[in-house]
């Protein structure tokens, strides 16, 4: 186990380093930079721009800039935002909670609904429900998340006026109920894709387990069918799903970015878009690194949880 962990962590460090190189190269090799913002100031001269570039360290060779950034990042100094000079980690931290709230709540919804759809599809294989679920999952994977959000707003906010069309809370209200009402729409919109994926894998996983000897044994020794289904089949079918959950993280993050835009949700996605518009390299790099870390931690947790929950799996 510890050998596995060590090996994995080493692998992840290499990956993160690669991620940082790719991210840095993408940002810095592209034309147009943070200086463009300062040319908009009236009376800005070329000499002054030079001074700014020098003070920001932008006039040094790229490898030097990268090394400077990398060296500081390794000791936890992720630089300061070009926009408001706040430390990058602080800026990310300030926008993290709304995104996490959105991702967590939609994951819970997606796992519950997806499991239900998958289980029902498996035990009633080739039924009308199963076909509709199959087709529905494919269509759900084809709908652009932001457009689904717009449709949601149109139906539930414009037509029915049941839900607010965006934002984290109503200014001046901010009660728990108000928060919850604002969360419903973005949470469901973000959950759609995950429900589709989760239900497909859950169905496949159920069909594998249903043919196992221990299910037959349970049935043969007279365990009631419902107990066989809940305790023997579904429980075991959920095990491999842990891995799927870990692998869904990048998709969930991408979806969160788009969903946040539609629902004017003040999370990391919005921060990322704003920072890109401003050419705020330190924040953009910070978010890229942070999300890559989140993705890798998700992978690692999935592997470990899978091993812990299933004694047949030995990690080494």
């Amino acid at each position: 186990m510890s050998r596995f962990l060590f090996h994995r962590l080493a692998q992840y460090l290499v990956l993160l380093w690669l991620v940082s190189v790719i991210g840095f190269a993408v940002l810095h090799l592209a034309p147009g930079g943070p200086l463009a913002q300062f040319t908009l100031i009236p009376g800005m001269t070329a000499e002054q721009l030079q001074v700014i570039a020098h003070q920001m360290g932008l006039d040094r060779p790229l490898p030097v800039q990268y090394w400077e950034w990398f060296r500081r990042m390794m000791v936890g100094e992720w630089g300061r935002s070009y926009r408001d000079s706040q430390p990058v980690l602080y800026v990310i931290g300030a926008h993290l909670w709304p995104t996490l709230e959105l991702m967590l709540s939609s994951s819970v919804v997606a796992v519950l609904l997806g499991t239900w759809v998958g289980v029902l599809g498996a035990i009633r294989r080739y039924s009308v429900f199963d076909y509709l679920a199959t087709i529905g999952a494919m269509v759900a994977l084809s709908i652009p998340t932001f457009w689904f959000g717009l449709v949601f707003i149109y139906i539930f906010s414009v037509k029915l006026a049941w839900l607010p069309p965006g934002n984290l809370y109503t200014i001046g209200d901010g009660s728990f109920l108000d928060y919850a009402r604002h969360l419903i729409a973005p949470c469901l919109v973000l959950a759609l894709v995950t429900i589709a994926i989760w239900s497909r894998y859950m169905r496949a996983s159920m069909l594998e387990v249903v043919n196992q000897d221990y299910v037959r044994t349970a049935r043969a020794k007279g365990v009631p069918e419902r107990a066989v289904l809940v305790h023997h089949t579904i429980r075991n079918a959920l095990l491999p799903m842990i891995t799927i959950a870990g692998l869904q993280l990048p998709t969930l993050l991408s979806g969160a970015l788009v969903t946040e835009t539609v629902f004017t949700w003040p999370g990391m996605g919005r921060l990322f878009l704003d920072s890109i518009g401003y050419r705020d390299y330190p924040v953009v790099m910070g978010i890229l690194m942070f999300s890559a870390m989140l993705v890798l931690i998700g992978n690692l947790l999935a592997d470990l949880l899978y091993a812990v929950s299933d004694p047949r799996i030995r990690l080494d």
């Binding site: 290499v14 990956l15 993160l16 690669l18 991620v19 790719i22 991210g23 993408v26 940002l27 592209a30 034309p31 147009g32 990048p250 998709t251 993050l253 991408s254 970015l257 788009v258 990322f272 878009l273 890109i276 518009g277 050419r279 953009v284 978010i287 890229l288 999300s291 890559a292 993705v295 890798l296």
Partner: peptide, 24 residues
């Protein structure tokens, strides 16, 4: 393949936007 893994570490929309925002 490690390079492929590294690119897959980025949530695709984040990478897409980072690239798209900086080209004409």
């Amino acid at each position: 393949m490690r390079f492929v893994d590294a690119v897959l570490c980025f949530p695709s929309i984040f990478l897409l936007l980072a690239l798209a925002a900086f080209v004409q």
